[in-house]
Amino acid sequence: MTTAVLDAPAASAAQSVAARMKPVSRSADTLFRWLCLGMAVGVLALVVLVGWQLWSGAQSAIHKFGVGFLTRSAWDPVQGEFGALPFIYGTLVSSLLGLAIATPLAVGTAIFLTELAPNWLRQPIAFLTEMLAAIPSVILGLWAIFIMLPLLPRYLFPFLKKTLGFLPLFQGPTYSAYSMIAAAIIIAIMILPIITSVSREILRSVPDLQREAAYGLGATRWEVTRIAVLSYAKKGIFGAMILGLGRALGETMAVTMVIGNTPKIAASLFQPGYTLASVIANEFAEATTDDYRNALIAVGLVLFGVTVVINLLARLLLKFGNTQTGAVH
């Protein structure tokens, strides 16, 4: 065979090559294509599935309680009273407070990583922030219960009372460490990585030309950052915040473990609260009556709706924030 091929003119080699190849078959191609298409459509179907399952599950609760479900503050499953307001309040307050704590830290870190830090330090720190994102929520919750919580009434609460005590937010008894503030701190830790890394991407996408122009005017490092970089990246950083907010609203385990799980609306941040996600986590498995379960599914629907809207908003901000500033004159 060897000699035959080597000696023979190309024509016979071509003949043997062609004869050995399998004939072209369209069916395998079509099959694979449809298989892949099915999977891609499956992802879209999953979106529909989530929405539909929550919607249909929440139907009876919506019928029974109407809009009042969102505005009533009584949550008493034994009496059959279901009002989601305390959870909405708790979710909003803890998330916004967490966001308020996390944003300056995250943006500061992002600026440090892209503009100020020496080169050798950038990768390691960025890596560590990404690793922070990898810590499972339940582990952070465990750490918070046993390490962080005992410290709060001893150091943080008295300090806050002393400095900010004139605000109703920081008044009232401070005996329990399970509180809105504890939840906010945990949420802040959990959303730091995402705000940092998205802000960092945004800052990195600012063209170097901008920086060079500012340096050329004799600006200092910080002035370059403020004038050339931050003003350019404002919208994007706002998008990063909104993305962080979306994540904060859905945080479940660690928050459930430290927020105290009390369906009451209290003015003081030292008081325990409850969030949409944590009421589902705590009570769903024990929801024995249909009403109870449907009310919890309705809570899930609210959570789902809010996070979807927030995420879409963040997506828009990140997309258009960037293209608009990109086209700056």
Partner: peptide, 29 residues
């Protein structure tokens, strides 16, 4: 490998929505 840009961005949007869904909601589903 196969899709047109419109369908692809549609699926991408869907996946991004799903990525933003809190994990507890998946439990409900």
């Amino acid at each position: 490998e196969y899709s047109g840009p419109r369908f692809a961005s549609c699926v991408r949007l869907g996946a991004d929505i799903l990525n933003g869904v809190p994990s507890i909601v998946w439990g409900i589903v």
